[in-house]
Design a protein around this nucleic acid. Structure first.
Length: 386
DNA sequence: CCAACCGGGCTCTGCCATAGGT
DNA sequence: ACCTATGGCAGAGCCCGGTTGG
C-alpha cells in the first residue's frame, strides 16, 4: 500500500521532467529536417539508406525505454509515432494504471499498438466510459485491452463509437449479447458504423432473397450465433454461404433455416479453408463407403465438423474407426467428434480394456463429460468383477 | 434412475494494404 | 512525402452439465 503513493510521486517527477525535455527539444527538431535535406542534395549518388526526413524524438525514446516498452517493435509497427513531437505516454500510463493495469501490461500495450500514446486523457476517459456502458467493471476492459490493444485504440473517433453502440443495441441484441460480442470480438466496436451496417444489411438481404419474412430477426440470430460475423467481410460470408449451398445442394428455404441455426457457426471461416475441409471430409467419407446423403446429414446436424482442420479431422475419424466405431454411428451421433483426439484415444483404450461393446451399447459414452465418464467407468469395472 | 438431448462456456489477434488527409 | 484510420486477411476446437424422457 505504502509503496503506491511513493511510486506515484516518482511518476509525477519523471513526467514533468520529460515534458520539460520535450519542450526544450522542439526548436532542435524543427531545424533538423532542413539540415538533413541539405545533406541529401549534396550527395545524390549516395546508395546508403536515406536518413528519415524527421528524426525520432529522443526524449520519447528514452521515456518509452524507461517504461519497458519494446521500442524495436514500435519502430517496426508504427514508426511515425516515434517521430512525433508531442505524445501522451505518461498520461496514458497513468490512466491505465488508475484502471488497474500493471506496468508490464502498459508496456506491452504500447509496444503492440504504439499509436495509443497519441490519445489524450480526455479522449481515453470518454472512450472508457463508452465501453463501460457494456462492461460492468474496469477489470474486464483491462483484460480485453491487454489481449487486444488494437481493438481499443485503433479508432480515434468516440462519436462514431457511440453511434456504433447505439446501432448494435437497436438490432435487438440484449445486453448479454452485447457483452459477449464485445468480449469475444472487440474489433466489432472499432469498425466504422457503416461497415457494421453493411453486414447487417447484407444479412437481411440474404434472408429476403431466400424467401424469409423477418430479415431483422434473421440478422440478429446469425450475429448472436456467430459473434465473429461483424468482423468479417461480406465477401467472405457470402462466399461461404454460396459454398455451403453448392456443397449440400440446398433449397432456399432449407438454407435459410440452417443459417439461423448452427450453420451460422462456420460462416466466418476463411473461404478456402472451408472448401478444403469440405472436400477432404467428402473424400474421406466416400472412402469409408458413405453416401452423399450421409455427408449432407453429418454437416447439417453438426456443421462445426467443417471447423476442424482437414488433417485433425481425418486423424480423429481414423482414431474412432480403428477403435471399432462405424461411420454410420458417427453420422448418427456426430457429437463424438467434439472431444480431442487425445481424449478419445484414452477413452477408447479404457473401454477396450473392459471389453466395451459399441455395437451393443452405442457410442454415447464417448461424449460424456469427464466426470460422468469416470463415474460410468467405475461402475462398469465394478460390475465386471462379479 | 439412467442415458440422451441440448445448449452454453471459453474465445480471436496481429499483421498488411491502401484511401485519404495534411 | 508521410501519416492515420480503416478494411481485410489467415489461422483453426474442446469441454461441461442442466434438463428431459423413457
Amino acid at each position: 500500500m505504502a509503496s503506491i503513493p511513493g511510486f506515484r510521486a516518482l511518476f509525477h517527477l519523471h513526467r514533468s521532467l520529460t515534458f520539460q525535455c520535450s519542450f526544450q527539444r522542439v526548436p532542435v527538431q524543427l531545424m533538423s529536417p532542413g539540415f538533413v535535406r541539405r545533406l541529401c542534395t549534396v550527395t545524390p549518388t549516395n546508395t546508403e539508406p536515406k536518413p528519415a526526413a524527421t528524426p525520432e524524438n529522443e526524449s520519447l525514446l528514452e521515456n518509452l525505454n524507461l517504461m519497458g516498452v519494446d521500442v524495436k517493435m514500435v519502430r517496426q509497427r508504427q514508426p511515425g509515432v516515434l517521430r512525433k513531437t508531442f505524445t501522451n505516454e505518461n498520461g496514458l500510463a497513468q490512466f491505465l494504471q488508475s484502471k488497474g493495469a500493471n506496468h508490464s501490461m502498459i508496456a506491452s500495450v504500447i509496444s503492440r499498438y504504439p499509436r495509443a500514446i497519441t490519445r489524450s486523457v480526455e479522449h481515453l476517459d470518454q472512450r472508457w466510459n463508452l465501453w463501460r456502458n457494456i462492461f460492468q467493471s474496469d477489470e474486464e476492459i483491462v483484460t480485453i485491452l491487454n489481449r487486444s490493444p488494437e481493438s481499443f485504440f485503433r479508432s480515434s473517433d468516440n462519436e462514431k463509437l457511440e453511434r456504433n453502440i447505439a446501432f448494435l443495441t437497436s438490432l435487438g441484441l440484449n445486453s448479454k449479447d452485447l457483452h459477449r460480442l464485445l468480449t469475444t470480438a472487440p474489433r466489432t466496436f472499432s469498425n466504422s458504423l457503416e461497415l457494421n451496417k453493411q453486414m447487417v444489411e447484407f444479412l437481411e438481404n440474404i434472408c429476403v432473397e431466400l424467401g424469409g419474412r423477418s430479415p431483422e430477426q434473421f440478422a440478429k440470430d446469425v450475429i448472436s450465433r456467430n459473434l465473429y460475423i461483424l468482423i468479417r467481410s461480406t465477401k467472405r460470408v457470402k462466399a461461404n454461404i454460396n459454398s455451403l449451398k453448392a456443397f449440400l445442394k440446398l433449397s432456399n428455404s432449407e438454407l435459410l433455416g440452417l443459417l439461423q441455426g448452427p450453420v451460422a457457426d462456420i460462416l466466418d471461416l476463411s473461404n478456402e479453408y472451408l472448401k478444403k475441409n469440405f472436400n477432404s471430409l467428402q473424400q474421406k467419407m466416400i472412402l469409408f463407403g458413405c453416401r452423399r446423403s450421409d455427408i449432407k446429414k453429418l454437416i447439417i446436424s453438426y456443421p462445426v465438423v467443417l471447423y476442424t482442420g482437414s488433417d485433425t479431422l481425418s486423424s480423429k475419424l481414423d482414431c474412432l474407426v480403428n477403435g471399432g466405431i462405424t461411420m454410420k454411428q458417427i453420422v448418427d451421433k456426430p457429437k463424438v467428434l467434439d472431444y480431442s483426439i487425445q481424449n478419445i484415444t484414452t477413452r477408447l483404450e479404457k473401454l477396450e480394456s473392459i471389453g466395451y461393446d459399441f455395437q451393443k451399447n452405442g457410442i454415447g459414452i464417448l461424449n460424456y463429460s469427464q466426470k460422468r465418464f469416470d463415474a460410468k467407468m467405475e461402475k462398469l469395472s465394478a460390475s465386471l468383477e462379479w
